[in-house]
């Protein structure tokens, strides 16, 4: 794991597992209950290393903006599963009192101010927070997480271009997860997204998002550059093959919750997951790396996961026990006055 200490590695793996288990819980909310999570939602399964690796490079006070696929980013930044899950089912115990829901989970106290469900909506906003930090003379930086679909929308290019012009301390993290909506013909590749950022004069690189160490390394270098005032950085994080459970806006857990032993023995996993576990799942890849290098044994990882599962169970219970907000509250908070 390069420069990461054992303790740090364990902490990061724990965060990744917290995300995995919370997202599974989201799917349970949608599939095991009636009328609990009725809309569509977007889970982060498989991409955990990106959120956790990038957030590891941040300091308190930094800003984070994300999209409809935000649950993992909020937990990666230190958000607790309970208020995240409560928000996702519209309960008053959510970080936004249930008002934002799955599309708009945010946590202002963690610097996750506003989450946009428009694919490129967060990109100019993150650049704006970076302008604010620059104008106020602080060392804060701002991060935008978005998918490759955001690079179809003009807002991204306008924001990238201004960020470059004004040397804004903003990190653009484009997670190419193969899930952009709209027209995507099989085999269509087009120019690499990183080339578009480079063309706008932005420091950019392609990162292997299936490997936590690669994300930590790239994000660490990017953040160093941002704090030095050298202008924006664009990371095209390749998150590998899409998790096979994604099914439009309503994900399905093939074979139930992820069994950690599958990471070490993909043959034991449901057929449709095997290739993904071998090549793309950032959690499985990390678990195997840690096991092989002797940093964290299977047994120790499974024990860690047991803790995480218990924590997630408690979080789900908290979310389910939290009431709906009072209906007439819907009329509040349009304006501050």
């Amino acid at each position: 794991m390069g420069e990461l200490s054992l303790e740090t590695t364990k902490a990061l793996l724990r965060r990744m597992l917290l995300i995995r288990r919370a997202e599974e819980q989201v799917i349970h909310f949608a599939t095991d209950y009636k009328e609990l999570l009725t809309g569509h939602y977007h889970v982060y399964i498989g991409q955990e290393a990106t959120g956790v690796g990038v957030c590891h490079a941040l300091q308190p006070g930094d800003y984070l903006f994300t999209t409809h696929r935000n649950h993992g980013h909020v937990i990666a930044r230190g958000g607790e599963s309970g208020p995240v899950l409560a928000e996702i089912i519209g309960r008053v115990g959510g970080y936004n009192r249930g008002r934002g829901g799955t599309f708009h989970v945010s946590a202002p106290h963690l610097g996750i101010l506003h989450t946009s469900a428009i694919v490129a909506g967060c990109v100019p906003l993150a650049a704006g927070a970076a302008l604010s930090a620059q104008q106020r003379g602080t060392s804060q930086i701002s991060v935008a997480f978005f998918g490759e679909g955001a690079m179809d929308e003009g807002a991204s290019y306008e924001a990238l271009s201004i960020a470059a012009l004004w040397t804004l301390p903003v990190l653009f993290v484009c997670e190419t997860n193969g899930m952009a909506g709209g027209r995507r013909e099989k085999g269509e590749s087009g120019p690499r997204l990183v080339d578009r950022a480079l063309a706008l004069g932005i420091t950019a690189e392609v990162v292997d998002g299936t490997r936590l160490a690669a994300v930590c390394d790239a994000a660490g270098r990017a953040v160093e550059r941002l704090r030095a005032g050298s202008g924006p950085v664009f990371l095209q994080v390749q998150t590998g093959n899409t998790w096979p459970g994604h099914s439009g806006g309503r994900a399905v857990l093939q074979g139930g919750d992820f069994d950690l032993t599958w990471a070490y023995d993909a043959a034991a996993a449901p057929q449709e997951l095997r290739e993904w576990i071998e090549t793309s799942d950032s959690v499985s890849i990390l678990l195997r790396d840690l096991d092989r290098s002797g940093v964290l044994s299977r047994a120790a990882a499974i024990e860690l996961d047991r803790e995480v599962r218990a924590e997630t169970q408690a979080a789900a219970k908290m979310a389910l026990e939290s009431p709906y907000p009072s209906p007439e509250g819907a009329l509040q908070h349009v304006f501050g006055r």
Binding site: G128, A129, A130, S132, A159, I162
Partner: peptide, 26 residues
């Protein structure tokens, strides 16, 4: 001069940047 920003003709970009800046203390 240090508090006047002249953006390119990118209304969507600079209005969004203004919104993000307004969320964060400007």
């Amino acid at each position: 001069a240090n508090r006047i920003k002249q953006p390119p003709i990118a209304e969507l970009g600079y209005c969004g940047i203004a919104v993000g800046a307004a969320m964060t203390g400007l």
